[in-house]
């Protein structure tokens, strides 16, 4: 077991998959000569050359579409967006081309393509650079969406994404790239569509993904000090969603709080609440609570930004509400 950063775990996944399959290539802004805006692709240009590590102009729509076309032509593109905020410019290609190709061609043309990059807020990047897009993306049939929170999951899920014959969205995090964690040696694959119980508990389930795993784990520690046993369920995949894992946990704890990065309206948490009320209604002892970003564009000011984000304190307060402790 090696200790790696999330960044290096992604780098390993890319390197191993490119060694394994010559049809895999990486395309995006600054991925080659500059070694990646966040250094995820460090060293890959030297190893694989400019044919497979392709620097693009700043033209998200265009290079995302070229990636889709390359997938139609039998390659396995990995398209890196410097952030998902910029990928909004490429949504036409992700939604109208990649996600629909198999269906509208009557099953003839599948789409083995990965779109990846950091999602959600970092620190003080203000409104246009601090957005979590997962509910937009997970809304679309024909896409798979994963959001790993740890280096091990980042490596294992990116490898699965590259081997998948469908378009897979990989949501990373600028604030996660430096995170260190143990990554199993050798071939490490995490299947898409499986949640992971990151902490066992009996009183309340904290459902989270990506950066909110850290929020939920911290909240669980604080709750433990208050004699509340919180279970932390990391979704890892948002589409397909591991419904069985969510229901199993809620049936055990009878209470749930969803902690997510995005805005509240039509967010991922709303989907999870829908599932729980429908399939675990009789097991619920309290209405499910959601912790989200405040329903505003992200402010620049440090204090306002902190107030807008999900936090352990907010998650603890929500857990206490569903336990009727306050």
């Amino acid at each position: 077991m090696a200790t790696l950063t999330y960044r290096d775990a992604l780098n390993q996944a890319l390197r191993e998959e490119m060694q394994r399959d010559p049809n895999v290539f990486l395309m995006g802004e600054e991925v080659g000569v500059y070694q990646g805006a966040y250094k995820v692709s460090r060293g890959l240009l030297e190893e694989f050359g400019p044919q497979r590590i392709v620097d693009t102009p700043i033209a998200e729509l265009g290079f995302a579409g070229i990636g889709v076309g390359a997938a139609m032509g039998g390659l396995r593109p990995v398209i890196e967006f410097m952030t998902w905020n910029f990928a909004v410019l490429a949504l036409d290609q992700i939604v109208n081309s990649a996600a629909k190709m198999l269906y509208m061609s009557g099953g003839q043309i599948n789409m083995p393509i990965v779109f990846r990059g950091p999602n959600g807020a970092a620190l003080q990047l203000s409104s246009q650079h601090s957005q979590a897009w997962e509910s937009w993306l997970a809304h679309i049939p024909g896409l798979k969406v994963v959001a790993p929170a740890t280096p091990a999951d980042a490596k294992g899920l990116l490898k699965s994404a590259i081997r998948d014959n469908n378009p897979v969205i990989v949501l990373e995090g600028e604030m996660l790239y430096n995170l260190k964690g143990d990554v199993p040696d050798g071939e490490h694959i995490v299947p898409i569509g499986r949640a992971d119980l990151k902490r066992e508990g009996t009183d309340v389930t904290l459902v989270c993904h990506s950066k909110t795993l850290a929020v939920a784990l911290k909240a669980a520690e604080q709750l433990a000090e208050q004699n509340v046993s919180a279970e932390v369920l990391d979704l890892r995949s948002l589409r397909p969603l591991d419904e069985a894992a969510i229901l199993e946990s809620v049936k055990k704890t009878n209470r749930a709080v969803v902690v997510e990065e995005g805005w509240p309206h039509a967010g991922i948490g709303a989907q999870i609440v829908d599932l729980i009320q429908r399939d675990a209604f009789d097991d619920l002892d309290a209405p499910v609570q959601r912790i989200t970003q405040a329903d505003v564009p992200m402010p620049y000011n440090k204090l306002l930004e902190r107030a807008a984000k999900a936090s352990p304190e907010k998650a603890v307060a929500a857990a206490r509400r569903v336990l009727y402790l306050d």
Partner: peptide, 10 residues
């Protein structure tokens, strides 16, 4: 149009 270029890229 980008899809066409992508096919040619492949």
């Amino acid at each position: 149009i980008p899809l066409g270029a992508g096919l040619a890229f492949a």
